[in-house]
Amino acid sequence: MSKVQFLLNGQQQSVEVPPMKRLLDVLREDLRLTGTKEGCGEGECGACAVLMNGELVNSCLIPALQAEGTRLCTIEGVSTDGHLHPIQQCFLERGGAQCGICTPGMILATHQLLDKYPNPTMEQIQEGLGGNLCRCTGYMRIFESVQEAAALNPLAGK
């Protein structure tokens, strides 16, 4: 067992877990944050995506020990006091979420995308979300949600 500490959604956390335990399982089982989903367990679908030090990562491929000292943001940390983040609001309004199982990862991937490209082109959106599989939407409503979120983003256009 290893003691692993990190900053999770703004709060300091400490867990005592096997060092090779997947971060995904640490979040879901030890910390009971079930918004992060498992779709494939092999880094292919992106349902387990979280932000680590501000960068999108698949939590199913991260051994707990490597989370030591990092800053993590899961879907539970995206909204504040129950107020939806603009990205969440846009996914809700534009039909970006259907069955909802890919949605947490998709929203975090959008988060990283808009951090990097406040005003993304369609190609940048397609690439930025390329690691997040969605079987319901055909992605079109998701693209629209992202574009709408970019339009609301105060950094866009700069």
């Binding site: 090779m20 997947r22 367990g41 092999e42 880094g43 199913c60 491929l61 991260i62 051994p63 020990l65 490597q66």
Partner: peptide
């Protein structure tokens, strides 16, 4: 040795990671 884990952790997930002892060099 394990760095980003994008290969070895896939092997772990499917039950095919042979080596039982790993050293992280990611840091």
């Amino acid at each position: 040795p394990i760095a980003g884990g994008t290969e070895l952790m896939v092997a772990l997930g499917v039950g095919r990671l042979q080596s039982r002892s790993l050293l992280s060099l990611q840091h």
